[in-house]
Simulated scan of single mutants.
Amino acid sequence: MLIQPTSYRMTVEDAILCLILAYRIHGTETGVIAAAYRARDLVRIECRPTFTRIIRCGAVLVWVENYLKVIEV
C-alpha cells in the first residue's frame, strides 16, 4: 500500500484519536481543547472548521464521550 504524500501532517482520524487520548489521559476540558488546537493546525484546511466547532463547544468532554459511544469503544 502506497501512502500518498500530503501537504498537511495529520489526517482527521489521527486528530480525533489525539482528542480521545487527551480525554483518557487528562480527563479535563482544558487538555482536550489544547489537543484540539494543536490538531486543528495540522489537519487539512477543509477540516479546520470542524475542530473550531469542537473547541467552541460548550461541553467538550460530553462531545468526546458521545463520540466514543458512537464508535462503540
Rank of each mutant, 00 (worst) to 15 (best):
M1F: 00
M1D: 10
I3M: 10
I3S: 11
I3Q: 11
Q4H: 04
Q4L: 14
Q4E: 13
P5G: 11
S7L: 13
Y8P: 00
R9W: 01
R9G: 08
M10H: 03
M10C: 12
T11F: 00
T11M: 09
T11Q: 09
V12F: 02
V12P: 04
V12D: 08
V12A: 12
E13L: 08
E13T: 06
A15D: 07
A15Y: 01
L17G: 11
C18G: 05
L19Q: 08
I20D: 00
L21M: 06
L21Q: 03
Y23S: 10
R24I: 08
I25G: 09
I25C: 12
G27Q: 06
T28Y: 01
T28H: 03
E29D: 13
E29L: 07
G31Q: 06
G31P: 10
V32Y: 07
I33K: 09
A34Y: 06
R38I: 10
R38Q: 11
R40N: 08
V43I: 15
R44F: 12
C47M: 11
R48M: 01
T50Q: 05
F51C: 13
F51A: 13
T52N: 08
I55N: 02
R56A: 14
C57T: 09
C57H: 12
G58D: 12
G58N: 13
A59V: 04
A59D: 14
A59M: 06
V60N: 02
V62W: 03
W63T: 02
V64P: 08
V64N: 01
L68Y: 04
L68E: 08
K69F: 03
K69P: 03
K69H: 02
V70E: 04
E72V: 12
